[in-house]
Simulated assay, not measured.
Amino acid sequence: MERTLITLTGSSQAALVDQDIAHIGRVMRPSLQGDLGGPILPVTYWRKRLYQLLDTGNLSHAQLCAVDSLLLQLDQFEAEPPPVWMGPAAASSAPFQPLHIAGSRHI
């Protein structure tokens, strides 16, 4: 089986970079916030992905601005203290009282 190298035209490569930037912009923050177990993917992962985009070398001005904005978001995320998770809500001291509707009859 013979392998063929696929080369992308400039517009195809730009479209892929745009898609990658959009994807990172959508999923980076939620993955950093994660859950009670911590981030799903760490800051170092996202920073590496963004630097790989910069290393492609042929980014448009708009793409450079978008990547720079995402890098600034990472810096801001690292500067913020991690959220303090509160324990379960305290139970009310009053016992549960069923709702009684006036005029209702039980069968």
Rank of each mutant, 00 (worst) to 15 (best):
Q97D: 08
K48R: 06
I21K: 07
L53G: 03
I101E: 00
M28H: 01
Q73P: 03
D75S: 05
G37W: 08
L8G: 10
E78T: 09
V84L: 13
S11W: 09
I6T: 08
S93A: 10
L41T: 00
D68K: 06
Q33E: 14
P98T: 07
R47D: 07
A102D: 15
A91M: 11
R47K: 06
T44C: 06
A90S: 11
R105W: 06
Q52L: 14
L74T: 01
Q19R: 04
L71F: 04
P42G: 01
L50A: 02
V27W: 05
D55N: 15
T44Q: 08
L74A: 01
T56Q: 09
L32H: 01
Y51L: 01
A102K: 15
L8C: 06
W85K: 04
Q33Y: 14
V27T: 08
L50C: 04
R105G: 12
T9A: 05
L50N: 02
L54S: 12
Q52G: 08
K48I: 09
G10P: 03
L54V: 01
P83E: 09
I24W: 01
L36K: 05
E78C: 07
S60L: 11
Q97E: 14
Q76A: 15
V17R: 13
S93I: 07
A91R: 11
H61F: 15
I40R: 11
M28P: 00
L70Q: 04
A14F: 05
L5P: 08
R105E: 13
L41I: 00
G10R: 10
L16E: 13
G103Y: 13
Q13A: 06
Q73S: 14
L8I: 00
P88Q: 07
G38N: 07
M1V: 14
I6D: 12
G25P: 08
V67L: 02
P81T: 08
Q63I: 07
P98L: 03
H106T: 07
S92I: 08
P81I: 10
D20W: 05
W46N: 00
A90T: 11
L59R: 09
L8W: 14
W85L: 12
T9C: 02
A89C: 05
H100Y: 10
P82M: 05
L71V: 12
F96T: 13
L72M: 13
D18M: 03
V84P: 09
G103D: 09
K48N: 09
Y45R: 12
L16I: 03
P82T: 02
G25D: 02
L41Y: 09
P30Y: 00
D18A: 08
P95K: 06
T9H: 04
H100K: 13
R49M: 10
L72I: 10
I40Y: 11
L64R: 15
L99K: 02
M28K: 01
H23P: 02
R49K: 08
R29G: 03
A14S: 12
A91E: 15
Q19E: 06
L70P: 02
F77K: 04
Q73G: 07
A79E: 03
R105C: 14
P81Y: 05
L74C: 03
P82S: 06
